[in-house]
Design a protein around this nucleic acid. Sequence first.
DNA 1: TGTACATCAGTGAACGCGCGTTCACTGATGTAC
DNA 2: TGTACATCAGTGAACGCGCGTTCACTGATGTAC
Lengths: 224, 224
Amino acid sequence: MEYKVDNVNISGEPRSAYHHGDLRNALVAAAIRLIEREGPAAFSLREAARDVGVSANAAYRHFADKSALMTAAAADGFAQLTQRMLQAIDAVTPQPSAALAALARFKAVGRAYIEFAVARPALFHLMFGEFGVACLQPGFHDGATPNAWALLGQALDALVTAGLLAPERRPDAELSAWAAVHGFAALALAGVTAPMNGPAHHAAREALLEMTVNGLCGSAGPTA
Amino acid sequence: MEYKVDNVNISGEPRSAYHHGDLRNALVAAAIRLIEREGPAAFSLREAARDVGVSANAAYRHFADKSALMTAAAADGFAQLTQRMLQAIDAVTPQPSAALAALARFKAVGRAYIEFAVARPALFHLMFGEFGVACLQPGFHDGATPNAWALLGQALDALVTAGLLAPERRPDAELSAWAAVHGFAALALAGVTAPMNGPAHHAAREALLEMTVNGLCGSAGPTA
DNA sequence: TGTACATCAGTGAACGCGCGTTCACTGATGTAC
DNA sequence: TGTACATCAGTGAACGCGCGTTCACTGATGTAC
């Protein structure tokens, strides 16, 4: 009885599958939770199963082995990152011109990326470690859902359309912009910004975004 | 006899210490070697001892525990990175002007950083992971030897002196420049640049450095 | 509608493994007299 | 110079642990007739 009562998902509907109903997703969620608490290195498959309340080997019904579970967790992390970036784009307030709007959206994407990394440091590490690599390969995502990489590309395309980014600089811009934002996030996670208080961290982040925009859209600089 | 013959260090002089003579450094070197081969997660203290040809617990004469050994390995990594940056600065060819020389040195520092990361990926990961964090705290290095962070600062100071970097932009430049270069290195290690061939990777790296210099030294860009 | 059967998602116990760390020890080195 | 002793850097065996993974299994669910 109690088992039946328990055996519903969050929306209250009976689970479609047999016993647990959604063990695969529950394990991924537990893996992410535990990785965030202890770091990717300390994570164990047994602990994830324990956390879900299931025997250790039950995981093998859904994942070939431990690394398959970690890869799934990393993929979920990328999906969450994409979601956060999409929300940030949507939340951009109206701007007086199309150019400023494109610029605001570009910065919003970068900010969302950094905020995600700071909010979920261990998950971010997982995503860019051994098990996340597969998610970065072109063609990993199904075409239907946008991925983080594509969102950045769209933001850059908008800068070109708005006349802010020279078309001939567009091809290299993707990796350069990503690198700047990724590096800031990684250094923050490594504790480089730890001595800064909140406002100082915020200012440093804005300066980084400013440098990036300047570097991509500004005049050619001292070497030209 | 043979033991005596063996018991000399690389320079041929008899070892100053008793048995192995330099076990501490040998363990650090082995740790780095093994971490580069298997990654930081797979590294074990026992394997390092085995590699050096010493019993597992001998390591405890020199390190409190495994994490102390890993921290020492990370610190050695930072020393190697600094060395590489210094060499790169020294190798800069003469430039027609002081400004161009300052610029060339700044770029050389960034290039050396990225090259180090690509050459020693697992060590680089270790340095910016859990065990390297301590090395990034201010005051970790003794004042005598320069550290990587200080070298970057000097390169930026030279840009200010040369009139290329506005003094008011100097404070934020340090973290922004580091972030751009660090991010490029991290993405390369994550395999993002894996589809690129050598020249394309090289070009992307130069574009990143160009963006950074433009962003720091160029005109204020579209928002001003 | 009832029943026999196939499928499928879980259980519980066990395995071998390598790990970090501790223990009591040994033998080489350095030093005081 | 020789000798007794302290120190110090190693050894070998053992510990308990939690891990990933496999095995034979059980019981719930779905389905064909």
